[in-house]
Amino acid sequence: MAPIPYWRLSSFYLFYFALLGSTAPFLALYFDHLGFSSARIGELVAIPMLMRCVAPNLWGWLGDRSGQRLLIVRLGALCTLASFSLIFVAKSYAWLALVMALHAFFWHAVLPQFEVITLAHLQGQTARYSQVRLWGSIGFILTVVALGRLFEWLSLDIYPVALVAIMAGIVLASLWVPNAQPPGQHERSDGGGFLRQLASPGVAAFYVCVALMQLSHGPYYTFLTLHLERLGYARGTIGMLWALGVVAEVLMFLAMSWILARFSLRRVLLASLLLAALRWWLLGSFAEYPGVLLFAQLLHAATFGSFHAAAIAFVQRSFGARQQGQGQALYAALAGTGGALGALYSGYSWNALGATITFSIASVAALVAAVIIAFRMTEEKAP
């Protein structure tokens, strides 16, 4: 068995999710700093998520047809950096919308193809995926803490510079990663193509729940920082709270191989969704209480950590080698669809209905997904 290029894979995840750690908590704050309304902020945050509905499927199809996944990753990282750099040209709503759409088209090409490369390197050792992926969470933690402190000392005008530096790190990390392809002997023997595998029992229901889960994250990723700032929390404290959630996520990743060996994917996904419903209700109704807020952030271990690890395992189990790229891309695309709808509805409802109702809608979305998992997915342990 070939050795795993652990640190090369991990370094890419570290920089990739450092970029997410710089956008999820602070992008809306930056647009608010520029003077945009909550509706415009919701729209600008939704644009990258909408591109995630289209780009991963296109790049996933290209990756499966060409087999050049690492080339797609490297070109995607480079084009992400180049297109986002256009933000220094102007700050109008139309120009920022263009920058958000253009850089996201390339950014969302990267991760699904890299997930396939990682899983190809981990053949026979799939349980180690979480041990590689946790470095992405560490990158997220380092970024939210550092930027939270930085924005207490300096103006938010420095924010685009920080993002460009992180994007350059993604480009360099992609050049360090060796290539790998899913072995052909793992192709399904029934000869079914992607659509046939998608029609397998429980697979379509799973993807619907992915979209609903990400929709429920809309208010969290779009307005949590503004929500907590208006409740009186300092930006440095808010950065630490974001980091706390990802620390819980890291600990969950470390435990996932043990959990998936003992519980079915259905049970892990169902528990994640039920805890998500609880989390959004707590954030919308009781975030002014530090103890409740700390507990809600610890639930990030379930709402992202266990859900994502179980979802990656489900996709790998459900598709053959030649459909892995499309399976991962569809996962990213439907997550983007749900995330975009979540950002849009929260942007329009935040001022009209308030934080409590907005987060309550998110809670209901997670509950609906839990019901679908309970009734449409069969019990089957991860391989």
Rank of each mutant, 00 (worst) to 15 (best):
H308F: 14
A309N: 11
A309V: 14
A309P: 09
A310G: 06
A311W: 01
A311H: 03
I312L: 09
I312N: 00
I312P: 02
A313G: 08
A313P: 05
A313L: 03
V315Q: 11
V315S: 08
R317D: 10
R317F: 00
F319L: 03
F319P: 01
F319H: 05
A321Q: 07
R322E: 12
R322Y: 04
Q323G: 00
Q323L: 03
Q323K: 01
Q326H: 00
Q328F: 13
A329W: 01
A332C: 10
A332S: 15
A332D: 04
A332L: 06
A333D: 04
L334F: 13
A335R: 03
A335C: 03
A335L: 09
A335N: 04
T337Q: 05
T337E: 11
G338W: 05
G338P: 14
G338C: 14
G338E: 08
G339E: 14
G339N: 10
G339W: 11
G339K: 11
L341H: 06
G342E: 11
G342C: 08
G342I: 15
G342T: 12
Y345K: 10
Y345C: 00
S346C: 12
S346I: 14
G347F: 12
Y348E: 05
Y348V: 07
Y348H: 15
S349L: 15
S349E: 09
L353G: 04
L353N: 13
L353P: 00
G354M: 09
G354V: 09
A355M: 10
A355I: 11
A355S: 12
A355N: 06
T356W: 10
I357E: 14
T358C: 05
T358I: 08
T358N: 10
S360T: 14
I361T: 07
S363N: 06
S363C: 07
A366L: 04
A366I: 02
A366Q: 01
A366M: 05
L367D: 02
L367R: 02
L367Q: 02
L367A: 13
V368C: 01
V368A: 11
